[in-house]
Amino acid sequence: MYRSRRVACSLLVFLGAVSASIASAETQDLKSISPDSGIRVMPERELVNTPVPVVQKGRLDIETRSGDFELPIAVSRDWTKPQDDVTRAVIVIPGWPRRDLRSGEHAAELAGAAARATVIVTPQFLTARDVAAHNLADNILRWGEDDWKVGKPSQDAAAISSFQVVDEIFHRLADRAIFPSLKTIVLAGHSAGGQFVQDYAVLGRGEADLGDALVHVRYVVANPATYLYLTDERPDSNGVFAPFNATSCRAFNRWNYGLQADIPAYSPRPGSIDELKTRYLRRDIIYLLGTADNAPDGDGQDQSCAAEAQGATRYARGRAFDAYVHALDPHITQRVYEARGIGHSSYRMFSSVCGQAALFDKPGCDSASE
């Protein structure tokens, strides 16, 4: 008993040291820390493989064929009681390290009156390391470090796609007994969270599960490393889209760079590629890009051949993908919002003038000078 307590105390000391070395994960993300601060910032790949210092206190109950499971979540309103004044819900998917847990709430605070009738929902996709480090119950869902962001099954008895978590959140928000005035749902994510949101916009069934509720859904895809393309076309050096030569990179069109193979098991199975493409192009999607997120060798940047086929930097890939969807359908309403001078930071992106416009429809993005 004494030895187990000593191990537990050592683990808590280790977690505290990690937390201190990267600053408070509840108030800022790592990319916001000044190089002159003296705080050591781990490379993202190393950070991803360490336990999170903070686990969301709330729990989202999810029924599965293997029993009842839970996911850590934060909800800015009590969604077990009627919230008559709420007209908008903003669901924020954290980034790859699973630590930027307050970027949505921080943006809402800065947005002021524009976000007053908004509920902010922030789920947290944990890994086995996180669950073990915090001694969480066996029924807490957990995924592989690289799996949750692309919709793969959880690594537990439930074995459910991470996309099903968002399905459940949509289902909760569609409850008119709790949210009788809800008009808009915004699903937003930054970096790996942005990948998740774009993938979900292709495969997700949350909109269909809203039933008769007249709720508009918007997707905000912020600074992802790569995009899920709907055909085999990629931009050439002149920005012209043409079928990509697969002999130079056989993985270029596999999930989640494309739809050729390895689409995650997510019941019911998706329709044909043409059906997915048609549905995606009808979505209300904002590509929120930081103009300073333009380092070819930036921390956490995907430098695989499949990623390089989309462009050299996150910013270039975002501009190229926007041109691509408009080439597929010149009449779509999807658009780019640019956060000028901002790099790879969820807090700064969502709190920017254009970030607040994307999340809360606050005016000012067209003339923004960040």
Rank of each mutant, 00 (worst) to 15 (best):
Y2V: 02
S4P: 04
R6L: 12
A8P: 00
C9Q: 14
L12V: 06
I22L: 13
A25W: 03
L30N: 07
K31E: 03
K31V: 01
D36Y: 15
P43E: 09
E44P: 00
R45C: 01
V48C: 02
P53W: 08
Q56D: 03
D61Y: 02
D61C: 00
I62M: 09
T64M: 08
A74P: 00
R77G: 07
D78K: 15
D78E: 15
W79T: 06
D100A: 06
G104C: 05
A107L: 13
A108H: 04
L110V: 15
G112K: 13
A115Q: 01
Q124E: 07
T127W: 07
A128G: 09
R129Q: 12
N139G: 08
L141S: 06
R142T: 11
G144L: 04
G144K: 06
W148K: 09
K149I: 03
V150M: 02
G151R: 04
S154L: 01
Q155L: 02
A159H: 01
A159P: 00
D167N: 13
R172I: 04
L173V: 01
I178N: 10
K183L: 10
K183R: 14
Q195M: 11
Q198C: 09
Q198R: 02
D199G: 11
R205M: 09
G206Q: 05
A208Y: 05
L210T: 07
L210E: 08
L214A: 15
V215M: 14
H216Y: 14
H216Q: 14
V217Y: 11
L228S: 05
Y229M: 08
P235D: 11
P235V: 11
S237H: 05
N238D: 13
F241R: 12
P243E: 12
N245C: 02
S248W: 02
R250L: 05
Y257R: 11
Y257V: 02
D262T: 07
D262S: 14
S272L: 13
S272T: 15
D274E: 15
L276D: 03
T278R: 13
T278M: 11
D284G: 03
I285E: 00
I285C: 10
I285F: 12
L289A: 13
L289R: 10
A292H: 06
D297R: 12
G298C: 13
G298K: 12
D299K: 04
D299V: 06
Q301R: 12
A309Q: 05
Q310F: 05
G311S: 10
Y315C: 00
R317Y: 08
G318S: 04
R319Y: 00
A320I: 01
D322K: 03
A323V: 05
Y324T: 14
Y324W: 12
H326E: 06
Q334A: 11
V336Y: 00
R340K: 14
I342A: 06
S345D: 13
G355K: 02
G355F: 04
Q356W: 11
L359N: 03
D366G: 09
S367T: 13
